[in-house]
Design a protein around this nucleic acid. Structure first.
Length: 445
RNA sequence: GGCGGCAUAGCCAAGUGGUAAGGCGGCGGUCUGCAAAACCGCUAUACCCCGGUUCGAAUCCGGGUGCCGCCUCCA
């Protein structure tokens, strides 16, 4: 399997370091509820993880929450809510949305505030080794002391334009030095540290938590491309400086989701929440919308594309509804794996699944169709599509009773009533189709 | 100023040297009480432009144009 590594900018053959594949996904700063753009990142990581598991790897997956930072403090102060309650509320919504989208739960969901001790000892280690300096209770990382600074983002220290958009803090020795620890101002939350009361800087938590849970060198770190600089660059600088070891072997970054041609961003308010999108579209359609485009290609949020995905997935679901899956063998598996092995080419993999579906329809009443149904099921599940029925047994029995009644009406040519039942069921999300051999039905949405 | 990404049919989107996957839409047909679904056929002489390399290029090289992003917090 080859994965495009941001560090080297080429597709590299992936081999795990040890028995288990360690994956760290940069999670949310829980100052707001998740928007649809966030979900692209978590679905990308989900597909990578599911595919690795499918290939037989043991995976340890970590997704963090940044539950303390400037904006959380500001927001809490503005609303009068306790900052912990605010963070928890957003975390709760994240889980609700994430589960709804059938994103596999990570093995660990560490929070910055639960790792203060580890963070402090990591900062201490950095200071001991000369990679941290203290100014008025703040601790900064001196980027000039790390020769490879900029290697991930392919930036040269002297070519960067510090202060281009934000005033340079005169406390720092170099404008790009970043805070490992921030002294608490009046009224802010704080923890005790050797440098006084304060809180961790943004980047250090990810180094502390990932190394604690996955080891000082681990396999895969994922996130959206906007985190490459400075966040991931800083993670590397801190971690390597503290341990003297390589930090992450594969850096995987997905693109942003844009909205009306502009980046979707919570700081500008230019975004749509995940919850509102889930009101309008099925989790499967949303997943299909994302996977139809390669994770590293620019993608625009577009309602028409979502509607399209809904129709396309409905066709697949209707096939699986009609044909009982039978068999062991997964057809087209070699093609599917070749696509996925090539840096997770989900658009190509989906193309293979759609080809199978068409072939299945062609041979709808044959045993071949049953084998195809089994194959389609397996492959869709590798990609994380939830194919479980969305209705209860009682609902199913009721619907089938109505269909039976309607069939009798049709036999008696009482089409007015039969059509009424059909259109009423449609309003309720149950599609009825009359075939030569009888009526079939399925649930949409 | 530096760095990176993208440009393929009506729309979305794979394809990185061998003659254009897939999805949605559209048109014609089969089937059908009607509807729907499904199936069949058609829907890019062609991949932003110009030049080059090659037997052969959407794919490689050079030069343009356009759009987006990063160098602030952001998934």
């Amino acid at each position: 399997m080859r994965l495009k590594n941001t560090l080297t900018n080429i597709k590299e053959e992936f081999q795990p370091l040890g028995d288990r594949v360690g994956i760290y996904t940069c999670g949310m700063t829980v100052q707001t509820i998740p928007h649809i753009g966030h979900m692209k990142t978590f679905i990308t990581a989900d597909v990578l993880k599911r595919y690795l598991i499918f290939k037989g790897y043991q995976v340890t997956h970590v997704t963090n929450f940044t539950d303390i930072d400037d904006k959380i403090i500001i927001k809490a102060k503005e609303s009068g809510e306790d900052w912990r309650a605010l963070a928890q509320r957003n975390i709760d919504i994240f889980f609700k949305v994430s589960d709804h989208l059938n994103i596999m739960r990570a093995d660990y969901y560490p929070r910055a505030t639960q790792f203060i001790e580890e963070i402090i000892s990591l900062i201490d280690r950095l200071i001991q080794r000369g990679f941290g300096y203290i100014v008025d209770g703040d601790v900064y990382f001196p980027v000039e002391r790390f020769p490879k600074y900029g290697q991930l983002a392919k930036k040269e220290l002297k070519e960067l334009m510090p202060g281009a958009r934000v005033a340079v803090d005169e406390k720092k020795r170099h404008p790009l030095d970043f805070a490992l620890w921030k002294a608490a101002k009046e009224g802010e939350p704080w923890w005790y540290s050797p440098w006084g009361k304060g809180r961790p800087g943004w980047h250090i938590e990810c180094s502390a938590m990932s190394m604690y849970l996955l080891g000082e060198t681990f396999d895969i770190h994922t996130g959206a491309e906007d985190l490459i600089f400075p966040h991931h660059e800083n993670e590397i600088a801190q971690s390597v400086s503290a341990t003297g070891k390589n930090f992450v072997r594969f850096w995987i970054h997905n693109t942003w989701l844009s909205l009306s041609g502009e980046k979707m961003s919570k700081s500008t308010g230019h975004y749509l929440t995940a919850e509102e999108i889930l009101q309008k579209y099925s989790p499967q359609a949303i997943r299909l919308f994302f996977l139809k485009s390669h994770y590293r290609m620019p993608q625009e949020y577009d309602e028409d594309r979502l509607k399209e995905a809904e129709l396309a997935f409905d066709r697949v679901r209707a096939f699986l509804n009609r044909v009982e899956p039978i068999g062991e063998e997964v057809l087209r598996l070699t093609d599917f794996e070749a696509a996925m092995d090539d840096d997770l080419n989900t658009p190509k993999a989906l193309g293979i699944i759609f080809e199978l579906v068409r072939e299945g329809y062609e041979k709808i009443d044959s045993s071949e169709a049953k084998k195809i149904a089994h194959s389609v099921r397996v492959l869709l599940e590798v990609l994380g599509f939830d194919l479980a029925p969305s209705i209860s047994g009682r609902e199913k029995a009721l619907i089938e009773e109505l269909i039976r009644l309607r069939s009798n009406l049709r036999r008696e040519k009482r089409y007015d009533l039969a059509d009424q039942i059909r259109s009423r069921l449609k309003e309720l999300g149950v599609i009825v189709e009359d075939k030569r051999e009888g009526s079939i039905w399925r649930v949409v949405r």
